[in-house]
């Protein structure tokens, strides 16, 4: 079982308290009606399916209830970092260097 650092609670807590919530940094378009069918399809369904560091969302559902972002390596299943929703996407190189 993973330990996940909730950036709101500022504590590493067992995976059981959290729920996965899909890929991160996919903002809902401000005006969906302005999107072509293809653009809307991509927003709905197209995901990166990364092998390696993956930007994804989690929710501390059995804790503070907050959604937050994480970078998790899909090969090692290791969390490289977690950060609050709305914070900018971290630079990968720096993260990997820190590993």
């Amino acid at each position: 079982m993973l330990l996940i650092q909730c950036p709101y609670c500022d504590e590493a807590l067992p995976e059981l308290e959290f729920a996965y919530a899909g890929e991160a940094h996919i903002a809902r378009p401000a005006d969906p009606s302005a999107l072509s069918d293809e653009e809307w399809r991509d927003f709905l369904f197209i995901r990166t399916n990364t092998r390696g560091p993956h930007f994804e969302r989690w929710r501390h559902i059995h804790g503070c209830g907050q959604f937050f972002n994480a970078v998790r390596d899909t090969v090692s299943d290791r969390f490289l970092m977690t950060y609050k929703a709305g914070e900018p996407r971290p630079v990968l190189n720096a993260l990997e260097a820190a590993e």
Partner: peptide
């Protein structure tokens, strides 16, 4: 509720 919280918190 999870869906509502998701939109409210993140969108």
């Amino acid at each position: 509720l999870n869906m509502m919280e998701d939109y409210l918190q993140t969108e």
